[in-house]
């Protein structure tokens, strides 16, 4: 079978140690694989590799020990099984996400949905250097969004339906930012101290705290590796519908401004985060920053 260079160029088939050996990298969008996927991966790892896989830091699955001559057959089988090839090289890499509110009691957003959206919009896009994105379902930031070129962290801002409150005292005791105070039989909140982690909404026994708005904090320009740099908290609050266009603008500005092999982190370090921010045509909802809400 002739080698399909177009397919090979999209990435995911990577030279490994040892003569004529390659590994096949698969992606799991936001870390989700079904039992069926796992069975299929096990089967192809035995058939084309050496019956083992390696789990990557970006929630991918690598099958080592594949020979170049097996590539066509392997990639055809990967596709037929609805498995997803991963990326390598100068591209948008696989989207990392935590389980989010579907599974995690702390979660405030549906990470599976947004990871899927980001995958559809950006995965595999050719850009000058590698570009990584991660999504965390809440303030705990388990997937380390600030270590990625673009990192999303879910936030939920609450509002109080005072008539439902029984003054039990719980929200004041669990609010991580110390934003909620109960004085003279009245609950009040200092929005500037609100972390947007939704503990009050999830725990209030009378549903007095309700969701006012959900969205994301967006970190920009993080990277790890040789010269680590944490991303800047550049956008305090971005509603879900604005996320894809915003990231698109970030990539466009990055491509215009980068010199040589600079990562986004390097461009931002050179220009300064404020200057970079000004170049992004996003008017934003900065008024709700840090729990601004209404």
């Amino acid at each position: 079978m002739a080698l399909d260079f177009h397919e090979l160029k999209k990435g995911g088939f990577i030279k490994q140690q040892g003569r004529d050996l390659f590994l096949m990298r698969l992606r799991a969008i936001g870390g989700h694989l079904t039992s069926r996927d796992l069975e299929n991966i096990a089967r192809i790892a035995a058939k084309y590799g050496r019956g083992e896989v390696h789990l990557t830091t970006r929630q991918g699955v690598e099958i080592p020990g594949v020979r170049l001559e097996q590539y066509q057959e392997l990639i055809a089988e990967v596709k037929a099984l609805n498995l997803l090839p991963g990326a390598c090289g100068p591209r948008v890499r696989s989207i990392v996400a935590c389980p989010g509110k579907e599974i995690c009691p702390n979660g405030v957003i549906d990470t599976r949905a947004i990871a899927g959206e980001l995958d559809r919009a950006f995965f595999g896009r050719d850009i000058p250097v590698k570009f990584k994105m991660a999504v965390a379902g809440c303030y705990n930031a388990c997937t380390k969004p600030m270590e990625n070129d673009v990192g999303l962290q879910g936030v939920v801002y609450p509002e109080l339906v005072a008539g439902r409150c029984s003054l039990c005292g719980l929200c004041q005791s669990i609010c991580p930012g110390g934003a909620i105070k109960i004085m003279n039989d009245r609950v009040s909140m200092d929005r500037k101290k609100c972390h947007g982690d939704g503990a009050c909404i999830a725990s209030c026994p009378n549903n007095a705290w309700v969701t006012a708005t959900t969205g994301f904090v967006v970190y920009v320009g993080g990277k790890m590796g040789r010269n680590p740099q944490l991303g800047y908290k550049m956008f305090e609050f971005v509603p879900e519908n604005d996320v894809v266009p915003l990231i698109n603008s970030i990539i466009v500005v990055y491509e215009e401004k980068r010199k040589g092999q600079e990562r986004l982190a390097d461009v931002i370090r050179r220009l300064g985060p404020e200057v970079f921010r000004e170049l992004i045509p996003y008017s934003g909802r900065e008024e709700v920053a840090a729990g601004g809400g209404n």
């Binding site: 009691p105 029984s166 039990c168 005292g169 719980l170 005791s173 669990i174 991580p176 503990a199 999830a202 725990s203 209030c204 026994p205």
Partner: peptide, 25 residues
């Protein structure tokens, strides 16, 4: 104790349909 036990147990109680009436330090 405060911190994780307080916040996690409270949240789980609500999720399982029990009702916190009072919280006192």
């Amino acid at each position: 104790t405060e911190g994780e036990p307080l916040s996690n147990v409270s949240r789980s109680l609500k999720a399982e349909g029990h009702k916190i009436l009072q919280v006192k330090k």
